[in-house]
């Protein structure tokens, strides 16, 4: 019993000590871009949530599919109902580690990084490595990432009639301003 209490106390202490090393962005930007001969398709959301754990360089990122906003209502409808099946798979999630992470990266000017982790979209999980940046810009801790995915990898079926007209890969862009969390 005593032993359990000690373990519990150590756990609580370590959580509070490391708690100061968390950063959050509650309105992270994420976009989805694809070009077609007719017009470009761009879906944007400012409602993704991401937490950076600076004790180990872990990044957790989540976005609600229905928050993606498109220029045309029809695009938004197709995106949610036909392709992403947002009512069945409401969230896209990514959890990964910054390669070669050390805490000084968060105080230095923006520099290139690589993040490897699991991306879960449309209920399909894949391990990916994406290029990005992290560091201080105008007094703010800023992180970005830009990478390409193919819908087929995530079990997203696009009718063949439409498929040929859309670029094979979709470009995903992520930008966020981290602020200290839990202080």
């Amino acid at each position: 019993m005593k032993k359990q209490l000690i373990i519990l106390a150590i756990l609580i202490m370590s959580v509070s000590a490391f708690g100061q090393d968390k950063f959050i962005a509650k309105n992270a930007y994420i976009s989805f871009y694809s070009s077609t001969p007719l017009e470009d398709i761009l879906g944007e959301s400012n409602e993704a949530v991401t937490i950076l754990d600076a004790t180990k360089g872990e990044v957790v990122f989540q976005a609600l599919m229905t928050t993606f906003h498109f220029k045309r209502a029809l695009m938004e409808e197709h995106f949610n109902e036909n392709y992403m099946e947002s009512s069945k798979f409401p969230k896209a999630k990514f959890k990964g580690m910054i390669e070669g992470f050390n805490k000084d990266m968060l105080k230095a000017p923006v520099a290139n990084i690589k993040i490897t982790g699991q991306l879960n979209v449309h209920g399909v999980e894949k391990t990916i490595t994406v290029p990005g940046t992290i560091g201080m810009e105008a007094g703010k801790l800023v992180a970005t990432a830009k990478f390409k995915v193919t819908p087929e990898e995530y079990g997203i079926v696009i009718p063949s009639l439409v498929r040929d007209k859309i670029g094979k890969e979709m470009e995903i862009t992520v930008k966020d301003n981290y602020v200290p969390f839990g202080q």
């Binding site: 509650k26 409602e47 993704a48 949530v49 989540q62 976005a63 609600l64 229905t66 928050t67 409401p90 969230k91």
Partner: peptide, 9 residues
């Protein structure tokens, strides 16, 4: 309402 992600969006 768009759902829940730490907060209701």
């Amino acid at each position: 309402c768009k759902g829940f992600l730490m907060e209701v969006k």
